[in-house]
């Protein structure tokens, strides 16, 4: 029996559908959620969420958030989430270069600006890594079911 999976970010519903298994980047480590999991609430860190359904896999990058697990449902409240296939590689590259340049210019550490740039860099790196690792495999998958 599959489990319902919803990934929502503040400004949209990113994914809604069934899953055989969901892999989450929990703040205490990766976790795999199977149907009939015990109720669980956890915070998430920057990483990739994998949704496995009928032998296919969907990948989503998230920039942290919270996940609620019920025996029949996984809800992910993400700070920013996107399907790996939606990622605009050129834009992510440009964002990474911008962030790296700004860091190279030497912003004083421990300031908000420094942390913001660093976070932006981590996000861009995550997106690019995710595309590199999962982007190709995605092309062989049938297109995502319409919600």
């Amino acid at each position: 029996m599959p489990i319902r999976c919803e990934i929502v970010s503040q400004d949209r519903m990113v994914y809604q559908g069934e899953a055989d298994m969901v892999l989450l980047p929990g703040s205490e480590g990766m976790m795999g959620i199977l149907p009939d999991h015990a109720p669980l609430l956890t915070t998430l860190k920057l990483g990739v969420v994998t949704v496995r359904i009928a032998g296919r896999e969907e990948y989503f990058t998230i920039a942290g958030g919270i996940a609620e697990v019920q025996p029949d449902q996984v809800t992910i409240l993400a700070d920013a989430a996107e399907n790996v296939r939606e990622i605009d590689v050129e834009r992510a590259e440009a964002a990474r270069r911008r962030a790296e340049e700004m860091l190279a210019k030497g912003i004083p550490h421990d300031t908000d600006a420094y942390l913001a740039v660093e976070a932006a860099l981590r996000r861009s790196n995550l997106r690019l890594d995710a595309v590199k690792r999962y982007g190709k495999r995605d092309t062989t998958l049938p297109s995502r079911k319409e919600e």
Binding site: S27, P39, L40, L41, T42, T43, I66
Partner: peptide, 10 residues
């Protein structure tokens, strides 16, 4: 419910 980390941090 399992809380990971604890409730306060969530």
């Amino acid at each position: 419910y399992i809380y990971e980390p604890e409730e306060r941090q969530i």
